[in-house]
């Protein structure tokens, strides 16, 4: 790693100030950022750790009934504390990476990074969650802008994520054999306003909503309802772990499994 200053502010305001420095970068749990720093893929002047900001940690219920997850909340905490109110989200969080990774990795870090094979983007997009930053609220549909790209401005911090609670939901993941990231993961949520289906790991453009499946499932929330629906292989990722056609198949299979589990 190149040398940098390490800062650990106590408040969002201090963090915003620290991040205003040229080439400063925010540090969540570091589970993705630190390996990339080791590879000399980034040369920040300062790393601003967000995990010391008390107001950004923990899980609570908002006045509108939504589940609010602080941006610096580790996956392991979400797995435990969201279990009663939003079990599908808790189950997803409890199966990210491995136990040691879950104790450090944070929801804000995961979303800001927007790895195309990460789990949380599927939950956020599938739930129709709202990303609350230090300056604004961003709907999930407007947040993810492709591989490793989001609507966040430089220096903008994810303070909280608000998840409306669906009637039924589940996440089904098929692991990439090496990294254990999602080769394809599908989050299905049935809400009063219809069904949302968000797919991670599969597309060359990162997490996406599968609208054909949403329509079919909104009419009939059953695995059989999407028997005749499929995603085209075109635009799916092809790599040493699977062809685009294979991933297209997994999108459907995992969607059906998520529906059955919901």
């Amino acid at each position: 790693m190149y040398a940098f200053d390490f800062e650990k502010p106590k408040t969002v305001a201090e963090a915003v100030e620290a991040l205003s420095r040229e080439d400063a970068m925010a540090l969540g749990g570091g589970q993705t950022l630190i390996p990339s720093l080791k590879q000399h893929l980034a040369a920040p002047s300062a790393l601003v750790s967000l995990t010391g900001i008390a107001e950004m940690r923990g899980v609570c219920t908002g006045t509108d009934g939504a589940l609010c997850v602080g941006g610096a909340t580790p996956h392991a905490v979400v797995a435990t504390e969201a279990a009663a109110k939003y079990p599908a989200l808790a189950a997803l969080a409890g199966n990210i990476g491995d136990p040691a990774v879950r104790n450090r990795g944070t929801i804000g870090g995961s979303l800001a990074n927007n790895d195309p094979a990460a789990d949380y983007p599927a939950a956020v997009l599938g739930s129709g969650a709202t990303i609350v930053t230090n300056t604004r609220s961003i709907a999930a549909d407007d947040f993810f802008e492709g591989l490793f790209t989001t609507a966040l401005e430089p220096g903008e911090i994810i303070v909280e994520v608000r998840f409306p609670i669906p009637q039924r939901a589940a996440y089904a993941k098929f692991q990439q054999p090496a990294s254990r990231f999602a080769l394809t993961g599908v989050f299905v949520a049935k809400t009063a306003n219809g069904v949302r289906v968000a797919v991670t790991g599969a597309s060359e453009n990162g997490v996406f909503r599968w609208s054909e499946a949403e329509a079919a499932l909104s009419a009939d929330f059953s695995a059989e309802a999407i028997e005749g629906v499929s995603v085209p292989a075109e635009g799916m990722v092809g790599d040493l772990h699977g062809t685009p056609a294979y991933r297209a198949n997994l999108v459907k299979v995992m969607t059906q499994r998520a529906v059955r589990a919901a």
């Binding site: 054999p177 090496a178 990294s179 040493l240 772990h241």
Partner: peptide, 19 residues
């Protein structure tokens, strides 16, 4: 599996891709 592409780049060069 150890996979080199046609340019001789190792595609499975870490535990992220070598299972």
């Amino acid at each position: 599996n150890t996979v080199y592409d046609e340019n001789g780049q190792l595609l499975s060069g870490s535990y992220m891709d070598y299972a």
